[in-house]
Design a protein around this nucleic acid. Structure first.
Lengths: 178, 178
DNA sequence: CGGAAAGTTCAATCTTTTTTGAACACAAGG
DNA sequence: CCTTGTGTTCAAAAAAGATTGAACTTTCCG
């Protein structure tokens, strides 16, 4: 059933029942630490790194009570964190028959992870500001001097070029990360 | 520092507290706003976005007193912000003969900007964690069961593969952004 | 129904980051 | 030497952000 763990699923193993969860061993702690650091780089709260890290290094899907206990995290924090990661697509819900709890497995396709991240973070900014740029081109017309007007139009033009470059780069990135 | 608020209300965005409205015109304000938003995406403080944005849309190099006044920012904050941006390579010192003040111009080559950013942010993380990975591979050996041991080794291996992928991707990115 | 288990919510609290401003250092000119 | 202009420092205040925990909703099941 699961003697070979083809990297992705290991769903069918019966989840630990109500008993105590072991606290984290060195290996788990180390892996989690890496994801905490990664979360930091990406500007996410530490707790999201912990949650994803635990899911990543856990052979079984994780659930709320487990993370509260093993990561020493409050129920509220864990609940919100799991939801955030699910919304981000970093954790995937796993249905387990006959168990009312919500289980989660990590998304481990880096392409998907990065894609969701960009969609979530970068795209809103790009849309907002490419809209704003149209307005700004008009504003630039009413500049004090001709020199300033020319300068501003150049700079605003360049900003637009940057954004276009980034926009066209994103699909390319997706393909590279296949 | 108590001009009419109505002027502020014209600007599209939400918060808009006092500041940055003094002697900035609509065009400057709009450009700065875009960089503030970008700073936000990148997890930098708002003030760095303001500083770079002002430098970007200013035909002349900027200096401390100017940004304090035009951005309504304290001297301390401006001083630290300018230094941070200079250290990051986003602002370049400009020497002006016969003037004691420190002037700055923006770095506008996107390749340089991105390069410095990655070097500053991502590289430290990659180095830290690729060191940690070596340790973790050993830790994984002492896992409870053979299945868990195998699973952990796979996951840690995959982590290493991600990092390697990212590392080899960075130089490529540099070239693409030429 | 009634109780227990699971998850959510949110105001209060704690933590971390950012900003301020006054004191300080330094250099140049008188 | 003073004074003035320029920039830095850093302790304290403010703001922003994250976490907690207790109350609440929902669902399941006897």
């Amino acid at each position: 059933m699961d003697s070979s763990l083809p990297t992705e699923a290991l769903v069918s193993a019966p989840p630990l029942e109500a008993g105590e969860f072991m606290s984290l061993d060195e290996c788990e702690r180390g892996v989690i630490e890496i994801f905490v650091s990664a979360a930091d780089v990406l500007g996410f709260p530490r707790s999201l790194g912990e949650l994803y890290g635990l899911a990543y290094i856990s052979p079984q899907p994780i659930h709320l009570a487990e993370v509260c206990e093993r990561l020493q995290m409050s129920k509220g924090s864990a609940s919100q964190g799991l939801r955030t990661l699910r919304d981000l697509g970093a954790l995937k819900p796993v249905y387990i028959a006959g168990d009312r709890r919500d289980f989660f497995q990590p998304e481990i396709k880096i392409r998907v992870l990065v894609g969701r991240l960009l969609a979530e973070r970068l795209r809103p900014h790009l849309e907002r500001s490419s809209g704003a740029l149209v307005e700004l081109k008009n504003e630039a017309e009413s500049a004090a001097s001709p020199q300033v007007k020319k300068f501003r139009k150049e700079r605003i033009e360049m900003l637009g070029a940057w954004q276009k470059r980034i926009s066209t780069f994103l699909p390319l990135l997706q393909r590279i990360l296949k």
